[in-house]
């Protein structure tokens, strides 16, 4: 029912995001499984807090780039501690302690209001390193990009934006989203043409799936669902999908062997032919849901 809301302005490229409310349901397994089966595609690990795509895809990293965000710096010769900057900062990133203005860079969203409103031109913006962008290739020609958030930096979104800027035109781009339903997940989902929600056959999985569905409906992004650790006897998720007219794209069985393969860094799609076929089917189904790009299953 959400198929009608496809973003057609993008032209020939296709951006597929892989998301889930609950962590550990298998986003990276699905994302990396998918890129193994699509010709000429690129993979973007947007889970910059805990990127794991590199462990499964083992790319050769060819390029790394430090990423910065602008934060204010005070010229104490010009500042008379009037406190105007403190007043206009909504994020409490500037604090007035008697004869000094203290900047808490971690809280800063880089809006620039403090600099604009300083009556003494005492504020300038300087660059603060927030992480690293890595770019490379996997053995079979998949473009690999990920972001690695600097440990201690609380805000992932500015780095996620930089990762998504690298999305390539004219190919299939797979975005591996961070977990949750808040800003980092939204940043990824809203930049995609189609979102694959990965859940698991548990009440936790269902509870968090419902929240993710609400987000995607609000963002008007078409989506479908993959159920991992699938258990026939647990009907709740399948019932929910049917009741709400949501596409079930694929199921992955609950199997210790899959968990073991993942634990040693193997992608299910390449260690098992049957799984590989399922990922090809998954991609075909996604393509049938969105305006396709001419990209072909290998």
């Amino acid at each position: 029912m959400w198929d009608t809301l496809i973003n057609v302005e993008r032209g020939q490229e296709l951006v597929i995001s892989i998301a889930s409310g609950k962590g550990g349901t298998g986003k990276t397994t699905v994302a990396t499984g998918l890129v193994q089966t699509i010709e000429n595609c690129s993979y973007f690990d947007c889970d910059v807090e805990e990127p794991n795509g590199h462990i499964l895809l083992q790319p050769s990293i060819e390029q790394t780039e430090k990423i910065y965000k602008p934060v204010p710096a005070i010229n104490s010769d010009l500042c008379n501690c009037c406190g105007k900057c403190v007043d206009v900062c909504e994020f409490n990133a500037l604090i007035n302690i008697k004869f000094d203005i203290v900047i808490i860079e971690e809280m800063c969203h880089s809006c620039g209001a403090c600099q604009h409103y300083c009556p003494h031109e005492a504020l300038s913006m300087r660059r603060k390193e927030i992480g690293e962008l890595r770019k490379g290739n996997t053995g079979n020609g998949v473009l690999f990009v990920d972001g690695v958030l600097k440990i201690g930096e609380p805000s992932a979104v500015p780095l996620i934006k930089k990762v998504i800027e690298r999305v390539k035109p004219d190919v299939v781009n797979v975005l591996d989203s961070p977990p949750g339903t808040s800003c980092p997940m939204i940043e990824v989902a809203k930049n995609s043409d189609y979102c694959v929600l990965v859940t698991e056959s548990t009440p936790y999985g269902l509870h968090d799936l419902v929240q993710s569905v609400d987000v995607l409906k609000a963002l008007r992004i078409p989506f479908g669902v993959v159920i991992n650790k699938f258990e026939d006897a647990f009907k709740d998720i399948v019932d929910y999908l049917e009741a709400n007219d949501i596409d079930l794209l694929m199921t992955i069985p609950f199997d210790r062997k899959i968990a073991e393969a993942y634990s040693s860094g193997k992608i299910p799609a390449i260690f098992n032919n049957e799984e590989r076929n399922k990922f090809e089917e998954l991609f075909k189904r996604i393509c049938s849901k969105v305006k396709t790009t001419g990209a072909e299953v290998v």
Binding site: N52, I55, I151, G152, A259, Y262, S263, S264, G265
Partner: peptide
């Protein structure tokens, strides 16, 4: 859990706890 991903993530978490 004993997976390469979880270990990688725990190491990053421990980095934060140090700070």
């Amino acid at each position: 859990e004993p997976s390469k991903s979880a270990m990688n993530d725990s190491i990053r978490l421990i980095g934060l706890l140090r700070i």
